[in-house]
Design a protein around this nucleic acid. Structure first.
Lengths: 175, 175
DNA sequence: CTAAATCTCTTAGCGACTAAGATATATATC
DNA sequence: GATATATATCTTAGTCGCTAAGAGATTTAG
């Protein structure tokens, strides 16, 4: 292989490297949840709240893919831990907005310090211009994954007998 | 903010973008598991097997952070689905190596096609040199996250009363 | 004003996880 | 070689979070 590596090989290596690092990211998250003493989904919801701010309960179900019943449980636990607050929407009194309690949620945030430090160190080796490239990639990658998720989900909606053959012995009914 | 964005702001934006895209990556994985009709941890183990090849059962416990008991269940389900095979190590007959069954596992692989296509499209917009930068970052990022995970885990080993104060009402005992 | 739709919560039942210990095999010590 | 300790996986009992289904409360449509 020449010094300018063949593009196909480069792409494959890249795919594998990203897969590996994102798998490790998942493990980091699991560890955070463990240390904090909350369930994985609970942490996932905290993350959504961090990114989106105050959101209605149903939105959490939508984004996480959990049922609304499960979300009720998540919120119960998070509320009991003092991490979030339920706030009834006065305009539409069916809705329940979930808001983080910043003072308490901060303590979860601290568990991301090792990660932030590691990343700071990594980023330190890049120029501003290179970082802008990484940012562009992160944003485009996000959109790509989002689209791919929708594509895969739509496959779930197509009647099973019409799906691209996936003859796996089914262990669980797929919804 | 000037055209050459202040580095601190750039870093923060980058952190958020990566967080967002990796969260979406998690959701993609959940969707794959749903469509395939297997549990999330089962898919995670398949992923490890894909990356590491044939590994002993205990290694799966180690990497996933599950107990060996849980892993037994994972393997039982995967084996029943025809995705992996148990192979006793002849040299050390306590060990059970887990190997994917390529013909069957391929069908899971197909569920990553939407993701691969999305990524191909994204990568298409980058030069070889830029891709090499992304590869370098993915590799360094992996090492960083791995180190951060270890750092966080070691925090778990330090006696609770000596940990950097994390006064969360504990809902679950942390191991 | 009634009917249908929307949003959250409740309940019953189930599947995956942990903790603890059982089993089988390997290694170290005498 | 026999015994003790260590290692690797499996088993069991009990717990927790999830889904499915539907109830309750409120809003929107006709």
């Amino acid at each position: 292989m020449s010094r300018t590596k063949a593009r196909a090989a480069l792409l494959q290596e890249l795919e594998e490297a990203m897969r590996r690092s994102s798998a490790q990211g998942v493990l980091y998250g699991q560890t955070v949840a463990n240390v904090a003493g909350i369930a994985n989904s609970d942490l996932e919801c905290m993350d959504i709240l961090y990114l989106e701010g105050r959101v209605p309960a149903g939105r959490l179900a939508e984004v996480t893919g959990l049922t609304t019943g499960a979300i009720t449980g998540v919120i119960d636990r998070l509320e009991k831990a003092g991490l979030v607050r339920r706030e009834r929407d006065e305009a539409d009194r069916r809705k329940v907005f979930i808001a983080v309690v910043p003072e308490t949620a901060m303590k979860i945030g601290q568990l991301y310090v090792p990660m932030q430090q590691a990343m700071e160190k990594v980023f330190g080796a890049y120029s501003d211009e290179e970082l802008r490239l990484l940012l562009r990639f992160a944003n485009e990658g996000y959109k790509g994954v989002l689209a791919a998720t929708e594509a895969l989900k739509s496959l779930l909606d197509t009647p099973p007998e019409k799906r691209p053959d996936l003859k796996l012995k089914k262990l669980r009914p797929n919804p």
